[in-house]
Write a protein that binds this DNA or RNA. Structure first.
Length: 611
DNA sequence: TACCTCTAATGATTCACTCC
DNA sequence: GGAGTGAATCATTAGAGGTA
């Protein structure tokens, strides 16, 4: 008699075809058993040839071994379900291309799997709910598909005779507002098409990457809801951190119409039935080992790696340190090996090796030149178009949309978004000067045990103002710090005395407007801000302060948190040294001193004691 | 049966136009 | 000027069909 798989192994396989790239931790959570017991089941399935495994390397996630169906397993399961391998591939993301795609977006895949595992575990703790269906959706979507584009998973809860189906969409911080609106537009278009859900398309759960992207989703969903009031689409928003710090059933979900957070089961729409297409048959008896007949497409895909898309394979092969380097260079182009060794906390020699390998893999490019203040040539690095495509796929955004709308600057000749890097190259000394100042600030902060929360590039630090000719204020950089419980945002202006007078007056005027507008809007959760202007000479400092005071007077502000210094002083003594002038005290002070004084101003919103 | 070519389907992007 | 919409175009992929 042929040996067969036991029930536990079949249940594990059943989950692995629904949620590819599961780790032992998530599978154990779903099965409600000890992780070591689950690891043994997974190891048996690997041994018998049902699964393939790989180890994740990502700066965002702890290293873990992830599992997916092998080509032989794919073929055998298709046979067991009386489907062709291609037919199974249309229903479930189990073929080698789908697996490669998930490795290329491994942060999203792992996050999604963890969320769904936690949902299963949370439902198991309730008395009235159970999970009717949970599955990741194939990337390749037939035109007549029962799920909308731009969603990653489908699920359905049951309470007695009622069903609550839902789709899940995973948001990435680096995706642009434009991309978020495109996703929403696609969902509304789906709800308007002829599809099996009729007018009652299930709720779409959007897992927002952070508070800022959550605000963008809120704004976009409200706009769309107002525009399509005749055919509402239930989009539910929650921040990823909030979901994981509670559980997916908790009161963390809100709709477009209200900011009131409610439990998932309250927010979902319940109904009596769902379309037949959503149902999957459970796996029944399976042999202990799959027959070795692999589906032809999988054999070809496995054998002919040159025909696979290059980017997904590469991203899986890139180590954690290289991925950190890529991220830094994507958002802060024209950094040197020395800058990166400071940012990634490694030796300069190691940074040079990593950069050489990234360049060999065509993920970055370099420029050997001399900044005006330098005595010799240096090598400056930036993201290549291949690097951009790799990150775009990681974040689930079409590469051209990523280049055009995200804040990443890369060498994408002929594409919209090309101008971002060109501008930085045109203003080379300005870019390098700002980078150097921020890297020094970050390095000194760490030495002084001040936590650096973020360094935002000019593209990311854009702030809106509601009055004036131009409605955007664009500092050269912003650095968010936290020290002894106090949080602060430093806005950086790097002035090379090249901006003409009227332009400079306009820019300083926008700062005055911004501080004036935010003066009474600040809530306890907002961070106090301080503007640091680094310029060329003490006389230029005086000139800028005079212009600023004039702008401040126009805005009717008694006080503006502003400090100035010169590039030579900052470079020689460091950003925390006594190089800053606040225009009130005699002489120069250290950065912490000027910040503390700003915090004590009666008009200051900085309700913090900055020692 | 393996391989190659062609075609249709699909999704992404671009561009022109309109509205606010 | 920015954002949305729809048509046109381009790129990619799956699948059918022909040939050795």
């Amino acid at each position: 008699m042929t040996a067969v798989l036991d029930d536990r192994a079949i249940t594990a396989l059943d989950w692995l075809i629904r949620l590819p790239l599961l780790g032992a931790y998530e599978l154990a959570m779903i099965l409600g058993e000890d992780e070591r017991a689950t690891s043994r089941v997974l190891s048996d399935l690997l041994h018998y040839g049902w699964l393939e495994a790989g180890v994740i390397s990502s700066p965002e996630i702890e290293p873990d071994r992830l599992h997916a169906l092998s080509p032989a397993g794919h073929s055998e399961i298709a046979r067991a379900l009386a489907l062709s391998p291609a037919g199974l591939g249309q229903e479930l993301p189990v073929d080698s291309q789908e697996t490669a795609y998930r490795w290329a977006r491994v942060e999203t895949t792992v996050g999604l799997n963890r969320l769904l595992a936690e949902l299963v575990a949370a439902v198991q703790k309730t008395t009235n709910l159970r999970v009717e269906a949970i599955r990741s959706l194939p990337r390749r979507r037939p035109r007549s598909a029962w799920w909308p584009v731009e969603v990653e998973a489908y699920g359905c809860l049951r309470a007695d005779q009622s069903l609550a189906p839902f789709f899940v969409a995973w948001d990435r911080a680096a995706a642009s507002f434009q991309h978020r609106k495109k996703r929403l537009a696609a969902w509304y278009a789906f709800s308007n098409e002829q599809q099996p859900w009729g007018t009652g398309v299930p709720s779409i759960l959007v897992l927002c990457a952070n508070a800022s992207t959550s605000a963008q989703w809120t704004k976009a969903t409200q706009t769309f809801a107002a525009r399509h009031a005749d055919r509402p689409l239930p989009v539910l928003l929650a921040e990823i951190d909030a979901v994981f710090s509670a559980d997916p059933l908790a009161e963390v979900w809100r709709g477009s119409e209200t900011n009131l957070e409610a439990a998932l089961s309250e927010r979902l729409t319940w109904r009596e039935r769902v379309p037949e297409e959503c149902h999957l048959r459970p796996l029944a008896d399976l042999p202990q080992t799959p027959s070795q007949q692999m589906p032809m497409r999988s054999v070809l895909a496995a054998a002919d790696t040159s025909s696979e898309r290059r980017a997904p394979v590469l991203y899986r092969e890139i180590g954690v340190t290289k991925k950190r380097f890529l991220d830094w260079l994507a958002f802060h182009p024209l950094l040197t090996a020395e800058d990166l060794s400071v940012l990634v906390h490694c030796r300069r020699q190691q940074a040079q090796i990593v950069l050489r390998r990234l360049k060999d893999a065509a993920l970055i490019e370099d420029l050997v030149t001399r900044a005006s203040d330098d005595v010799c040539d240096a090598t400056y690095y930036f993201l290549s178009s291949e690097g951009l495509k790799t990150l775009a796929q990681r974040d689930g955004v079409p590469a051209r949309r990523y280049a055009r709308h995200s804040s990443i600057a890369a060498a994408v000749t002929g594409w919209q978004g090309e101008g971002r890097l060109q501008t930085l190259l045109r203003q080379f000394d300005h870019t390098v000067g700002t980078n150097r100042f921020c890297v020094g600030l970050l390095a000194d902060s760490v030495r002084r045990q001040i936590q650096v929360i973020a360094w935002l590039s000019a593209a990311d630090a854009v702030m809106s103002i509601s009055s004036g000719d131009r409605r955007q204020l664009r500092p050269d950089a912003a650095v968010d710090l936290q020290w002894r419980g106090a949080r602060l945002r430093l806005l950086v202006e790097w002035d090379r005395h090249t901006m003409r007078g009227p332009q400079m007056n306009a820019k300083l005027g926008r700062y005055a407007t911004y501080f004036s507008e935010t003066r009474y809007q600040r809530t306890n959760g907002d961070w106090p801000e301080h503007l640091l202007v680094v310029t060329t000479s003490p006389s230029r400092e005086e000139d800028l302060r005079a212009r600023f005071n004039s702008a401040v007077g126009t805005a009717g502000l008694p006080f503006i948190p502003l400090s100035t210094s010169t590039a030579s002083l900052v470079e020689r003594l460091g950003p925390f040294a006594a190089v800053w002038s606040n225009g009130v005290e005699q002489g120069r002070m250290g950065l912490l001193d000027v910040l503390a004084l700003a915090g004590r101003q009666p008009d200051s919103e900085a309700k913090v004691r900055w020692p």
